[in-house]
Nucleic acid binder design. Structure first.
Length: 84
DNA sequence: TAGTTGACCGGAA
DNA sequence: ATTCCGGCCAACT
């Protein structure tokens, strides 16, 4: 049983190409359905190349936010991968 | 140890 | 449909 952060990182890293998960989904699979906020905070502090955080979106259907460009950058990344 | 912050969610006005 | 408010969790100071 690892920490919440490790679980979240592993789950996000397991997101297949062309697919997207919501922060809530990741939080739920990580063990805390209500930790969607924490997931975002973790991504913000732990965004690596092994962790496609841009594939993680909000439950409302919006993309959410992202580093270096925010939502706009995220949208471009998703479109470039085929997740869109 | 306690307080503040934030890439969120859901319900209400 | 949009805007406001409260709540939950982990990380940072």
């Amino acid at each position: 049983m690892k920490t919440f952060t490790e679980k979240v990182r592993a789950i996000v890293a397991k997101i297949p190409k062309g697919k997207s998960m919501t922060y809530k989904e990741v939080a739920t699979k990580a063990g805390n359905p209500k930790a969607a906020r924490a997931v975002g905070a973790i991504m913000r502090s732990n965004y690596n190349r092994d962790i496609p955080c841009h594939r993680v979106v909000k439950s409302d259907g919006s993309l959410g936010s992202y580093n270096r460009g925010g939502t706009l950058r995220k949208r471009e990344l998703l479109k470039a991968e085929g997740t869109l």
